[in-house]
Simulated scan of single mutants.
Amino acid sequence: MGEIFSPIEHSRTADEVVQQIERLILEGVLRTGDRLPGERELAQRFEVSRPILRDALKALEARGLLSTRHGGGTQVADVDGQIFAAPVAELMASHRKARADYLEYRREMEGIAAEYAARRITDDDRALFERIMARMEEAHQRGDFRDEAEIDVEFHNAIGECSHNILLLHTLRSCYRLLSDGVFENRLILFSTPGAREQLLDQHRAIHDAIVAANPTAARKAAMEHITFVEQATSEVERTGDWLRVSRLRLQQRIDSDNGVARKSPRKTRKTVSN
Rank of each mutant, 00 (worst) to 15 (best):
R142T: 09
E27L: 15
S192Q: 06
E161C: 15
Y105L: 14
I8V: 10
T32L: 13
R177M: 14
L190H: 09
H170K: 08
A89I: 05
A77H: 02
A118T: 04
I4E: 08
E238M: 14
R106E: 04
D55G: 15
R254P: 08
M92F: 13
K97T: 06
Q253P: 09
M109T: 13
L91N: 14
S235L: 09
L167N: 05
E108V: 15
L60S: 00
E161V: 15
G72F: 01
E154F: 04
R119L: 12
A14M: 01
E154R: 03
L201M: 00
S257M: 12
S274H: 11
E41M: 15
E61Y: 02
A93G: 13
P51E: 02
A219S: 09
E130T: 07
R40E: 08
A219C: 05
E137L: 00
F191G: 13
Q199R: 07
V88G: 07
R35M: 08
A233W: 05
L168C: 06
P7I: 04
R35P: 04
H226S: 07
Q199D: 05
L57F: 04
L30E: 05
E47V: 15
Y176D: 04
A206I: 01
K271A: 13
V212L: 02
A262G: 06
L200F: 12
S265C: 14
D124K: 14
A14H: 01
L200V: 10
V88E: 13
G143K: 07
T13P: 11
G2D: 10
R267D: 08
R177V: 15
D123M: 06
L42V: 00
S49Q: 05
R99F: 14
K221Q: 14
G143S: 12
V76W: 02
E148K: 10
F184G: 03
L190E: 02
N215D: 12
I151P: 00
I166W: 11
K221N: 15
R99Q: 14
E130I: 03
T32H: 15
F46G: 04
H164Y: 01
A100D: 13
F5H: 07
V79G: 02
Q253K: 10
R12L: 07
E150D: 10
I25V: 06
Q141L: 02
P216N: 11
L201Y: 00
P194D: 04
L36N: 03
V48L: 08
R12M: 07
L65Y: 03
A139H: 00
I121Q: 05
F5N: 04
R40W: 06
A222F: 04
A89D: 08
R250C: 11
P87M: 02
D125P: 11
L57P: 04
F129G: 03
H164N: 03
D147H: 10
R177L: 14
P216Y: 05
T269D: 03
F5W: 02
T74R: 13
E137N: 02
V153R: 14
R263V: 10
S67A: 11
E150Y: 02
V183K: 00
T32I: 11
T193Y: 13
K221R: 15
E236H: 11
V230T: 06
I159Y: 01
K264S: 07
L249Q: 12
V79A: 01
A149F: 04
P37M: 01
I211E: 07
R245F: 12
S94K: 02
